[in-house]
Amino acid sequence: MKTRRDFVKTSLALGATFSLVGNLNSLFAAEPVTTPTTSAPTGPKSVLAAIRDGDRVTMLDKALAELGGIQAFVKPGQTVVIKPNIGWNASPERGANTHPSIVGHLVALCLSVGAKTVSVFDNTCDQWRETYVNSGIEKAAKDAGAIVVNGKDETLYREVEIPNGVKLKTAKVHSLILDSDVFINVPVLKHHQSTLMTACMKNLMGIVWERGVWHRVDLHQCIADLLTLHKPALNIIDAYHPMVRNGPRGKTVEDCVEMRTLLASTDIVAIDAAAAKLLGRNPTDITHVKIGHEMKLGRMDLENLDVRRHKLA
């Protein structure tokens, strides 16, 4: 028999959980696509941690501390999937992939708070074996104790419906994303020849099997549509040495500039909006960020966010 007291307790606990992980509840809520959010949000603002001028690992620690520490996201016994950008067969200094030190440290942090398993994968653009090895990510992740999983195995992907997608109605999503308890998105910040920027939202193209159809249908809309299915619990952007031209593949290290910045947030649209600024763009220039905001997948109006800026030097 459920007493009133029980009900109140459960409600409070639920409320607390959701406020902790930001607006993760929109994951399950079948919200209608409506007009852009213009009014300031009620309730607690999402936190965007923006750190500068430290080494990658220190900045990551500082950013996570602002968000309540890794233990706010990973509970003992949970399974974690980390999705870096491992798109291209390039060495770490080329800035085409997430830096291995960030991936390695993140894996270690998750395990240190009792994660059952930590898996790392990407549906690479270049040949996956070469890319996993030459990006340095496979070694860093394995050394830290992660399971490095093949992202080029179609049998590991499952077809799912996307009821709230505007143009993307189904997608084959990697089972690790569908089955893991915690999903952490950790791309590198890069220029992109068509979308102008690739950061957190676009990085999730690497969790689906068939991307060609996205390009045929409407790239930006599909990127936003996928988020109506599943949003990462935590987003981290490696902007230490971002690629500012010739992206997303890049040619040489000259395509990158030293920015020594790291961003972290539970709001995937907000973090991408800040990332756009880092590349000298307005958030509205990046069509998928704009669509994400309009679809209430997050906020691109940084003035309505709790931005915590830290310079470590």
Partner: peptide
């Protein structure tokens, strides 16, 4: 072969652009 010089930084160095 396209040889390009070091890319310029998109923002003033040393601060957050937001």
């Amino acid at each position: 072969k396209l040889v390009e010089k070091q890319a310029p930084a998109p923002n003033p160095v040393g601060d957050f652009p937001f």
